[in-house]
Design a protein around this nucleic acid. Structure first.
Lengths: 337, 337
DNA sequence: TTGAAAGCGCTACCAT
DNA sequence: ATGGTAGCGCTTTCAA
C-alpha cells in the first residue's frame, strides 16, 4: 500500500520525473502526446500529487486559514459558508480557527497558520493588528479582513456600509414616531461599531434629538451581555421606547430582558436587530432587522484573497456591501404617554 | 527575511542538525546542557519547526480533519467547539470541511484530507461508509464517527444513548396524558434515527397505544422540511396531540406549521425538541427538549482520535453518552376532547 | 522537447 | 552523546 509517487508514473511512461511534473502541470513545453500518455498512466496508477512535498518545494500549500471570533454564532457560520463556496471548488483546503474573541488565541492561531504555510488568511471579525499579522505581511502571506477592520496596514477589507445600515434602522424607528432610541453596540473598539455609533449620533442630533446619557451601551456579543445592558437602560428615568441592537444575538438579549420585566415587544419596546439570520425570521421572534448579505461577504473575501494569492504585488482593496432592511413585527409606534 | 532553519540553529550552537532535532524533540539521548543551549539558540534566532518538512519526512502533519454535514447548524458548531477545545491546546490544526449533507462532497473532502496527510479524521454526522473512508483505513488514518454511525468497519464511534433519549421524551408526554404522539425523525437511514424510531414504537406498543399510520415522518434536517411534514400530520383524521422532533431545528419547523394554522403551543400541540441548543432556551421559544451533551460529544471524539493517532494498533472503541431532559413550556397536557 | 540533479527542511539511521 | 548523511516527493534550473 505504498504511496504512488511521481517516480512510479515516470517509470511507467518511460520519461523523467521532470517531464511528468511538467505534463501534469499542463506546461506548454510538453507535447500534447506526452501529456496524454502521462495523464493516462497517472490515472491508471491512481497517482495524486502530494501537497506536502509540493509545499516544501514551492512554498504553496493550497490551504487558506480562516480565523473567526465565534464559530457557534450562526452569523459567522453563514459567512464561512460563503467563503468555502468559492474556495472549495478550487481545491483549497480551509483551516478554520476559532478564537472565542480572545486576543491571545488570535495570535496563536495566526502564528500556527503561518508555520503551516497557508497561502492566505481571512480574518473574520479580528479585533486588532498584532505581531502575528505583521509577521504574515512580512512573510508575504496575503490577509483579508472581514466584517471588522483591524487597525492599519496592508490588508484588504470586506465589510458592510455601516452608516447606511444604521440610518436604515433609525429612519424606520423615527418614522414610527420613536424619539428616545437606545443603541446596543459592540463593546470592542472596532471600526464598524464606531461607525455605527457615529451615524447614530449624527442622525439623531441632526433631527434635534441628540441621544441622552445612558442611551448607548457597549456590550459583548453574548445574549447575556445585552440582557444586562437592556435591564440597565430600562432603569433610566426616561427609558428608550425603541432599541437598536447591532446583532441578532444582542436583540435576543433585549427580548430576554423585556420578558423578565414583563414588558411586551413591540407594545412596550420596539427592537431592531442586525444581521437577519434565520433566527430573526422564526415565527416566535419576528425581528425587524437590518439584513446583512452574509454569503456575499464571504464570497467577496475569498475572491479578494485569491486575487492577492495569485499576484501578491496587487494593491489591497476594500469592498463595501450594502445592507438590506426587513420589517417584521418587533417594531411598532411607541405607546401614547 | 529567509526562514530560520534547523541548520541555522545548529551552526549557532556549534552542533549538528541531528542533535538540534533530538534536543528540540526532548529525546533522552541528549544532555540536559546541550538541550538548554539548543533551546536558547532556537529562541534567539526565532526558530520554529516547519510542520511541512517534518510531515514529508515522518508522515505526521499535526493536523486533523473534521467533516461536518452542516456547519451553520448551531448544534454541530457546539460539537466542533468541543473537539477543538482538546485538539487546539495540543497544537493540532483542525481542517473543517462542510458537506451540506451531500455524499459527493463528503467523498471529495475525505479524499483531499488524505492527500494532505491529516493524522486523523472526525466524521461528524457522516452518512455512510464510502470508498474514501475505506481508503483512509487502508492508509492507516484513524477515523472517529460522531453522532451518526456510518455502516460497518473499523471506526470508533461517539454518540448518545438514543433509546434512552426517546424514552425520556415519551415518558414526559405520556405522563402528561398524551396518547397520540407523532414523531419527526431524520429522513436519512442513519442508525440513531432508526434506534429512536424503534424505541418510540416499542414504548408506545408496550403501553397498548401503537403509533397510527402517518404518525412518523422522515424529514431532512431543515426547518422547512419539518414544517411541511407537520402540516401533513395536522391533516390526519386523528392528528397527534404531541410531537417529538429529533432536533431543535425540526422543532422550530413544527412551530412554524402551528403558527400558520393558527394553533397554539402547547395548548393545541405539545412539542418536544432534541438537542437543547441556545435556541430552545430563548424566552419566545421555551422548548421542552432532550438535551444533548454537545461539548462532551466533541471532547470524547477528539480523545478517541488522539488515542488511535498515538497508537493505531489500539482497538476501536465506542462511547455512548447519556442525554438529559429539560422541561420548558412547549409541553402541557392535551386539551380535553 | 526532454532529462539529470540539486535541494526545500526535516528526521532516522548508522557511525563514531 | 553527538555527527554525517540519505531521502521523504516534488519542482526547477541547466544541459543535452
Amino acid at each position: 500500500m505504498a504511496r504512488v509517487t511521481i517516480r512510479d508514473v515516470a517509470k511507467r511512461v518511460g520519461v523523467s520525473e521532470a517531464t511528468v511534473s511538467n505534463a501534469l502541470a499542463d506546461k506548454p513545453i510538453v507535447t500534447a502526446e506526452t501529456k496524454a500518455r502521462v495523464r493516462q498512466a497517472a490515472e491508471e496508477l491512481g497517482y495524486h500529487i502530494s501537497p506536502i512535498a509540493r509545499a516544501l518545494r514551492t512554498g504553496q500549500t493550497g490551504t487558506v486559514g480562516i480565523v473567526v471570533s465565534n464559530l457557534a454564532n450562526p452569523f459567522y457560520a453563514d459567512i464561512l459558508l460563503g467563503i468555502s463556496s468559492v474556495l472549495t471548488p478550487l481545491g483549497y483546503q480551509t483551516i478554520i480557527c476559532n478564537t472565542e474573541s480572545r486576543a491571545e488565541l488570535q495570535e496563536w492561531h495566526v502564528t500556527h497558520l503561518l508555520r503551516h504555510m497557508v497561502d492566505g488568511i481571512v480574518l473574520l471579525s479580528y479585533s486588532s493588528e498584532t505581531k502575528a499579522t505583521t509577521r504574515a505581511l512580512a512573510a508575504g502571506v496575503p490577509l483579508v479582513a472581514l466584517w471588522r477592520r483591524p487597525g492599519g496596514s496592508e490588508v484588504s477589507f470586506v465589510g458592510m456600509d455601516d452608516p447606511v445600515a444604521m440610518r436604515l434602522a433609525l429612519e424606520h424607528l423615527w418614522s414610527l414616531g420613536h424619539r428616545r432610541i437606545g443603541l446596543l453596540r459592540a463593546h470592542a473598539a472596532s471600526s464598524p461599531s464606531e461607525a455605527r455609533q457615529n451615524a447614530y449620533t449624527e442622525y439623531l442630533t441632526g433631527r434635534g434629538a441628540p441621544p441622552l446619557p445612558g442611551m448607548v451601551a457597549g456590550v459583548d456579543l453574548s445574549i447575556e451581555g445585552s440582557r444586562d445592558a437592556t435591564l440597565q437602560m430600562l432603569d433610566l428615568p426616561a427609558p428608550p421606547t425603541a432599541l437598536i441592537a447591532t446583532s441578532d444575538l444582542m436583540a435576543l438579549g433585549v427580548t430576554m430582558a423585556l420578558a423578565e420585566r414583563g414588558l411586551a415587544m413591540p407594545a412596550d419596546m420596539s427592537v431592531v436587530g442586525f444581521e437577519d439570520t434565520f433566527i430573526a425570521g422564526l415565527p416566535q421572534i419576528q425581528l425587524t432587522a437590518v439584513s446583512v448579505p452574509r454569503r456575499e461577504l464571504g464570497i467577496h473575501a475569498a475572491e479578494l484573497l485569491l486575487e492577492r494569492i495569485a499576484d501578491s504585488s496587487l494593491p489591497v482593496r476594500d469592498v463595501v456591501l450594502q445592507p438590506g432592511f426587513r420589517i417584521r413585527s418587533s417594531t411598532a409606534p411607541p405607546q401614547a404617554g
